[in-house]
Design a protein around this nucleic acid. Structure first.
Ligand SMILES: NC(=O)c1ccc[n+]([C@@H]2O[C@H](COP(=O)([O-])OP(=O)(O)OC[C@H]3O[C@@H](n4cnc5c(N)ncnc54)[C@H](O)[C@@H]3O)[C@@H](O)[C@H]2O)c1
Ligand SMILES: NC(=O)c1ccc[n+]([C@@H]2O[C@H](COP(=O)([O-])OP(=O)(O)OC[C@H]3O[C@@H](n4cnc5c(N)ncnc54)[C@H](O)[C@@H]3O)[C@@H](O)[C@H]2O)c1
Lengths: 227, 227
DNA sequence: TCGGTTTTGTTCTCGCGTTCACAAGCGCCT
DNA sequence: AGGCGCTTGTGAACGCGAGAACAAAACCGA
């Protein structure tokens, strides 16, 4: 390993090129748009069409796709099925991802009942809750189990992704336990800042923040009109 | 109106400075961190402490706050209560925002039951659903009403913010109706691209996309380990 | 076989956001 | 009163992402 070849861009054929984070965030959108097109019977589409369906600029779409490789045909466009498979493979949704949900309250139940996960390669293998009163309750065809079963479940199903839907005060504890079990990706719905080891990915979904951002812009609209 | 003075930056004293979008997205996080500090009895904090609590870099925090004004004291730090009020005022959460939720299924019910909205200045004034079987059902103390009541409710309560929690196929129709009623901010949970007039703000929350992003990174971790 | 047409893949430029680093300012202690 | 230490606010450098623009490539029709 002379120099720092692994870090900088390398044209090596088998090595995965590293895809910009902004692009990674859009690939699932393209994937969904392609699925829709496919269901409508479209077999080929141009970057312009696909960009329209995905709600982005066509130049941006082409640049994003170019990070994956050259899967289009100049003068023709992209083969819908082929591109769909390539994106799915790149994201990793061709394989099946086992997921555990911790905190089966209002939100946890909604998540457990959501069919859109399974159809996109995610399989909820267990629902965990600290509240004993909830145990053995059946939600979405799965029994709610005690939080202490986490280790067992993670090891049995090789779970790598955990979802936190507990109150904010419990979130850090739950995250610590998840990390200790070997979970390396966490989707956090609790409004709290999690601290985890560097190799663990955390994504946060915070509904009140979204509303507050809307409120900010809303306020500016009305205040501008008032002046 | 000589030149395009209104569009470019203007140092006018009363005019609201325009705050970068990235900063706006972080202000609610600071707000929450300040609330927590306040509840713990802290009356003063440094940018370093607050940044730690919010999970960001302290330089970034200071720059973000500097867009609002100079609310800190050099050598001392920030007054927690004072800063909290200033941020709340800037975001607009000192006032009360009426909100309607459309689509009272799994997710809509969870949202309706969520107490975190009210405590942050948002008040759910109505729950709407197209399914007649759901009408008159009571969720979170509110009666589920027919979607056709939208106009009436929006005008009665001066609603500016709408939440869409319907299936994807219905989302565009719902959005169109909302816009027609005068709603100018939409939070969309359906996995679909909405097209709305320019002056309407749309924010999208897409849980499967979040999971797919995690899956992408997860895949890279394991594949890196395998090579 | 060859020009024309269409659409991709890529290069280049610009602007935004992040981070470093430091001067200015404030309080405290002597 | 004056110096000292601490913390803010900001100027400047840097890197990433967005978008325009174009050259390269593939198909089509004559
Ligand atoms: N409901 C929503 O629409 C909504 C919206 C935005 C954010 N959130 C956030 O999502 C989280 C869950 O919200 P909710 O409305 O479902 O709350 P909830 O109170 O209905 O459910 C929380 C569940 O977590 C369980 N729990 C508590 N501590 C636990 C622990 N240590 N280990 C395992 N389970 C534990 C509780 O028993 C309960 O069943 C909260 O942090 C909330 O702020 C919810
Ligand atoms: N449940 C989840 O955790 C989850 C997660 C991610 C995304 N989503 C998305 O959120 C949306 C709602 O999910 P859900 O699980 O609550 O679905 P759901 O089927 O349980 O509820 C949808 C509700 O919308 C109502 N509806 C349908 N068409 C309507 C219309 N035109 N006007 C008004 N109401 C209408 C239905 O009657 C139903 O009550 C979906 O788009 C889904 O993809 C849900």
């Amino acid at each position: 390993m002379e120099k720092t070849r692994a870090v900088t861009a390398r044209p090596s054929p088998e090595a995965a090129r590293d895809i910009p984070e902004a692009t990674v965030a859009r690939l699932p959108v393209y994937l969904r748009a392609l699925t829709t097109l496919s269901e409508q019977g479209t077999s080929t589409c141009s970057s312009e069409e696909l960009a329209g369906a995905a709600g982005v600029n066509s130049a941006k779409l082409r640049k994003d796709l170019s990070y994956l490789g050259s899967y289009g045909t100049r003068g023709v466009g992209y083969d819908v099925e082929y591109l769909r498979y390539q994106i799915a493979r790149e994201i990793g949704v061709t394989q099946d991802w086992p997921v555990v949900i911790v905190g089966i309250g209002n939100l946890g139940q909604a998540l457990a009942n959501y069919s859109g996960f399974r159809s996109r390669g995610f399989r909820v293998v267990a629902l965990l809750d600290a509240d004993e009163a909830r145990h053995d309750e059946v939600v979405a065809g799965l029994e709610v189990r005690p939080f202490s079963d986490l280790e067992q479940i993670v090891s049995d199903h090789a779970v790598a992704i955990g979802v936190i839907a507990t109150p904010a005060v419990a979130a850090q504890d739950v995250a610590d336990r998840m990390v200790a079990c070997g979970i390396t990706s966490i989707l956090n719905f609790a409004p709290s800042v999690l601290s985890v080891p560097e190799q663990v990915d955390v994504r946060k979904v915070d509904l009140s923040i979204e509303l507050q951002i809307l409120a900010y812009h809303e306020q500016r609209k009305t205040q501008g009109a008032a002046s």
